[in-house]
C-alpha cells in the first residue's frame, strides 16, 4: 500500500484516491492556434520516466480534491504531494 498525503485530509492509503496520470502534460493554452504536432504531443505522447514522476491523484473517497503527487515509478516511493499548483521540486522529469 502506498501512503499519500492529501494536503487537506492528511496521510491516507492510496486506495482512497483515483489516479489521473502525468501532471506535466498541459493542455495547449490557445487550442485554435496550435499545430497538429502540438496536439499529438498533448493527447498521445508521454515521457513515461522510470523514476520520479509528477502525477495527478483525486481524493475520491475523501475531500474529492485533485492533488499533485511526486512518486517514483521504479520504487513506488512517494516523495511529496501538494495542491495542484504545487511545485514539488526537481525537474529531472521534463
Amino acid at each position: 500500500m502506498m501512503l499519500i498525503t492529501c494536503p487537506w485530509c492528511g496521510p491516507r492509503a492510496h486506495v482512497e484516491f483515483t489516479y489521473g496520470g502525468d501532471a506535466t502534460v498541459a493542455r495547449p493554452a490557445a487550442p485554435d492556434a496550435v499545430t497538429a504536432e502540438a496536439w499529438l504531443d498533448h493527447v498521445y505522447l508521454r515521457d513515461n520516466p522510470r523514476g520520479p514522476h509528477d502525477e495527478w491523484w483525486q481524493h475520491t473517497s475523501g475531500c474529492r480534491s485533485w492533488i499533485k503527487v511526486r512518486r517514483d515509478t521504479w520504487t513506488h516511493r512517494v516523495h511529496g504531494s501538494g495542491p495542484p499548483e504545487a511545485n514539488l521540486g526537481g525537474d529531472e522529469h521534463r
Binding site: M1, T18, D22, E55, T73, W74
Partner: peptide, 13 residues
Amino acid sequence: DFYNSYAQRGNLP
C-alpha cells in the same frame, strides 16, 4: 494497479 510503474510488483488492493 492503475498508476505508472516500472516495479514488476504491485500492491495488495
